[in-house]
């Protein structure tokens, strides 16, 4: 069987979702780690160094392209799967008691994913896009700490970020285990471990992300103006 066929069969499409999904989980680990450094009370030094390292290192820039492709693949394949799967039941049930046999979030991955996508567009427009643009045109990155401080003064933005992170939490609550199941790794022996890590990850990571806008909004973090510039 050729590779194309292997990745376009019903299982193959899910393999694409699983592999990109686990890559995105790996990215979230890096993202949350670097950003959580803003909570280290060291005059924002560690965060600055880590963010600058990621932003200027050629290897991470190449990885960034891979990440973008992964996100796009995950989104496009996900939406296609959603619409194809819907077409497999042309006449709907009059009564369908889904909650009797499955969790609501496992049945709502398309919806949760779409909510995350909406949030993601806003999020990239807030930080990633202007930063890369300035880097491209002037060669200097923006002060992302100061950007966060400014953007998270808006209560509506903070609420949207919180909702985005909550969608992410429920998406991960199913997606984490589901990816391992699709890749054939969730054996009877490993399933409890995968489940445990999955649940912890799905709660902790979004919670840490939520803490960032909330902390800036309520002024729990020192203002950017109080730091002396770190020389690049």
């Amino acid at each position: 069987m050729n590779w194309k066929h292997a990745f376009t069969s019903s299982i193959g499409k899910k393999l694409v979702m699983g592999i990109t999904g686990i890559s995105l989980i790996a990215f979230l680990c890096v993202h949350v780690y670097v950003n959580a450094l803003i909570f280290v009370p060291d005059g924002y030094h560690k965060y600055e160094v880590a963010a600058h390292f990621l932003g200027s290192n050629p290897l991470t820039r190449i990885a960034e392209i891979g990440l973008l492709l992964g996100i796009i693949l995950h989104i496009v394949q996900g939406l296609m799967l959603w619409s194809q799967n819907r077409s497999k039941r042309p006449v709907k049930y009059a009564v369908y008691d889904g909650k009797a046999n499955s969790t609501w979030y496992s049945r709502s991955m398309g919806l949760l994913g779409t909510l995350i996508l909406i949030f993601l567009v806003l999020h990239l427009a807030h930080f990633w896009a202007p930063n890369r643009w300035q880097q491209l045109t002037t060669g200097h990155e923006r002060n992302l700490y100061a950007e966060m401080e400014a953007i998270f003064q808006n209560g509506i933005v903070v609420i949207v970020y919180i909702l985005g992170c909550i969608s992410l939490a429920w998406h991960l609550m199913h997606g984490f285990w589901s990816a391992f199941q699709t890749l054939g790794l969730s054996t009877a022996k490993y399933r409890p471990i995968i489940n445990g890590i999955g649940i912890a990850f799905s709660i902790l990571v979004p919670l840490l992300f939520i803490a960032m806008p909330v902390a800036f909004y309520f002024g729990w973090l020192p203002p950017a103006a109080s730091f002396t510039e770190v020389a690049h």
């Binding site: 899910k14 194809q84 497999k88 496992s106």
Partner: peptide, 24 residues
């Protein structure tokens, strides 16, 4: 037939208790 999204509704409704470990 559609693609599996691992909701596990099948296992819950299977009269013979076939486990999703088989899907794995």
């Amino acid at each position: 037939f559609g693609s599996c999204t691992n909701t596990e509704a099948c296992e819950a409704e299977c009269p013979k208790g076939i486990s999703v470990l088989n899907i794995r």
